[in-house]
Structures are given as structure tokens and as C-alpha cells.
Amino acid sequence: MGKPDAEGNGPADGLPGLPPEWGRVVVPDDASALAAEAAQVRRELRRASGLPGGHRALGLPLLVLLVAVVTTLAGLLVVTWPRANRGTERPSPTPYSPPASLTGQALPALDLVDAQDAPVPLRGLLPAMIILLDGCPCPDRVSEALAAAPADVSVVTVTAGRSAPAGPTTQRQAHVLADPAGGLRSFLGQPARPGVATAVLVDRAGTVTRVLPDLGTVESYRSDLSALAA
């Protein structure tokens, strides 16, 4: 059998002291000496499980544990489930288009600025084809518009900064303006896109006759340009 410590309260093998109300505790040298106590504990557990509600008392914690484990596994399965197209799916680009009600609306009374930073009323240049170049300089498109526009129809190029760039080197020059406040782009309701020029055609009464979100070749708007001179 084990040996109590000097105070007689417990074993003298380095274990912490036990409460005095436990009395004298002796640790046996042979574990088989505890066989009787172990058998008694097993009998008490079997008796508790046989009482009414005993299985329920034991089953409820097991049920809660089972639900927690299933929930955790389900969450991991959703997160780690392989997807064949993960990382390769890309949303289909939606083409830009002007609001359906923009054609027929009046052009706002916007004041842009020229190369000398002087204000220029945009409605004072009508009828006009106004080309926004904040997404693309597109000199070829500007040259085509200048060559196709009737004599009394203005071709106006608009950039976003305060400094208006030099016009194309052609016999006829465009009105080169800047729109630092972005009023014209806001009116059109379309963001600037790299490599794309946007144009709006306005008659002499100040009414928008057509919006070209992506200015293509001159053949796509030649008839609309000629109609501005009527």
C-alpha cells in the first residue's frame, strides 16, 4: 500500500494536498486493490441508466453533439466542394446604350471651356455632332466626321480635362473643348470606356436626334449627320 505524508493527509509522492474533510487517502501500490471500488462504480452507472429518464438524460447530450458535428461537416462541405468552373466564369459584358428617352430630349445649357480656358456655351454651336474623346483620342473617327459633316453643322470634340488638345490636321477644324465638370458625360449617362469614342447629334433647336455610344464608321451615321442641316 502507499505511504501517507508526514501530516497523514495523503500520499507523499508529490501530489497536492487534499481537502481535510476527505480524511486519510491512501494510494495503493497495486491497482488491482481498486477492483472492488471499480465494480461498485459500474453497478451505480448501470443502475442510473436503468432509472426512468436515465437514457434520455444520457441521450440528450449525445444528440446535441451529433447535431453540432453534422452542422460543422455540412459547412465544410459547402466551402470545399469543387466547382468545375470556379475562377473561370466571367459575367457577360453588357453593351452600353443610351437611355431610351434620351433621343428627343433637349441638350442642357452647358458651358465648356476652350484651349484658353474661356467658357463656350455648347448650345451656341448647334446644330452639331459632339464627340466625347475622354476614352479615346480617335483622330481617324474625328477626321471622318469632319469630312462628312455639312458646312453648317459643327463638329465638336470634348475631353474630360481642363486643357483641350490640338485639333486634327485637316482642312476643316473641329471645335476643341474640354468638360472638366463632366456635365455632358453625366447627361448621356454612360461612363467613358478605353478605346471608345461616344458621340451625340443635336439639331439647331437643341434637341438630341441620336446618341452613338460607340462611334463607328461614318456610314453608320452619315444620314443622321445630313439631317442636322435640314
Rank of each mutant, 00 (worst) to 15 (best):
P119D: 12
P168R: 09
P168V: 14
A164G: 10
D134R: 15
L126R: 09
P127Q: 08
A160E: 06
P127F: 08
T170Q: 10
G167Q: 00
L133Q: 15
P150H: 07
G167W: 07
G167I: 02
C136Q: 14
A160P: 02
R141K: 13
L126H: 12
D111Q: 12
A147L: 09
V120H: 05
T170N: 01
L112A: 05
P127D: 08
V113W: 01
G135E: 09
P137Y: 06
A148N: 06
L133G: 10
V158K: 04
C136W: 15
A149Y: 00
D134K: 12
R172H: 09
A164T: 04
A174C: 06
R141G: 15
G135D: 09
L110Y: 03
V142Y: 01
R162P: 09
H175I: 13
I131K: 07
A115G: 08
I130M: 13
R162C: 07
L133F: 02
P165M: 04
P108M: 02
E144A: 14
A178F: 00
G124T: 14
L107I: 00
A151T: 12
A115Q: 12
I130W: 11
T157K: 01
V155F: 09
A160C: 01
L125G: 04
T169A: 14
D114V: 07
V155P: 01
P121I: 11
P139N: 11
A149N: 05
A145R: 11
C136I: 01
V176K: 01
P108W: 00
D117F: 11
P121H: 07
A151V: 11
D114T: 08
A148T: 13
L122T: 08
L110R: 02
H175V: 14
C136P: 04
A148L: 13
I131N: 11
A164N: 04
H175K: 09
P165C: 00
G161K: 04
I130L: 10
R172A: 09
S163R: 14
T159E: 08
V155G: 08
A148I: 06
G167N: 02
I131E: 13
L112W: 02
V158M: 07
G167F: 02
A178I: 00
P168C: 05
L122A: 11
V176A: 11
I130N: 10
A148F: 00
L146S: 06
Q173T: 14
P137A: 14
L146C: 05
Q116P: 03
R123T: 15
P139K: 07
S154H: 13
M129P: 01
A164F: 07
A115M: 06
P108D: 01
Q171F: 06
P150L: 10
V113M: 00
D111N: 11
L126P: 12
V153P: 09
A109M: 04
L146Q: 04
A145C: 11
P119G: 12
P168H: 03
L110Q: 01
Q173Y: 03
Q173V: 13
T170D: 10
D134H: 15
A148V: 10
P137H: 08
T169V: 12
G135K: 04
V156I: 06
T170P: 01
C138L: 05
A160W: 01
P119F: 12
L146E: 02
A148P: 06
L107Q: 04
G161L: 05
G161M: 05
L110D: 03
